[in-house]
């Protein structure tokens, strides 16, 4: 077992994990942050996206020990004082989600897109940037709309 120290959604945490344990397993099973999902096991779908030191990272392909000393933000840490993050609000207003399972990853992908590319995102950019996120419900139409609207308000 290894001790891993991280800051998760602003709170310092220290967990004991096996070296084989994935970051998503620590978040979900040890820290009860179940908003981060696992949907593919092969790093294809993006449901497990979290921000590690501000960078969107697939937590299903990151070992927990790799995150030692990092600052992690999960979907649970995005809203501040009960106010939704603009990207969260935009998903609601634009019907950018149906079953909700891919949604935390989609929102994180949107936030990360703005960090890298700025607030003014066109449809084609968003479509192409979402390559690492899969949704079966929405057909992506309203996800693209939501990210565009959310980005503009960030």
């Amino acid at each position: 077992m290894t001790t891993v120290g991280m800051t998760v959604n602003g709170d310092p945490v220290s967990v004991e994990t096996e070296d084989r344990t994935l970051l998503v397993e620590v978040l979900r099973d040890q820290l009860a942050l179940t908003g981060t999902h696992v949907a593919c096991d092969t790093s294809q779908c993006g449901a497990c996206l979290v921000l590690i030191d501000g960078v969107a990272t697939k937590s299903c392909t990151t070992l927990a020990v790799q995150a030692d000393g990092s600052e992690i933000q999960t979907i649970e840490g995005l809203a501040k004082d009960g106010d939704l993050h603009p990207m969260q609000a935009a998903f609601n207003e634009n019907h950018g989600l149906q079953c909700g399972f891919c949604t935390p990853g989609m929102i994180m992908a949107g936030v990360d897109m703005v960090r890298r590319l700025g607030k003014d995102l066109d449809d084609e950019t968003i479509r192409s940037e979402l390559e690492g996120n899969i949704c079966r419900c929405t057909g992506y139409v309203n996800i693209v709309k939501a990210i565009k609207a959310g980005a503009a308000r960030m």
């Binding site: 999960t74 995005l78 019907h95």
Partner: peptide, 21 residues
């Protein structure tokens, strides 16, 4: 009408079977 259920899904508070322990 925007969906009532969205707030729990957009904030990570959805409870799927895999989240039940």
């Amino acid at each position: 009408v925007p969906r009532k259920e969205d707030r729990r899904f957009t904030t990570g508070q959805g409870t799927y079977t895999g989240d039940v322990n």
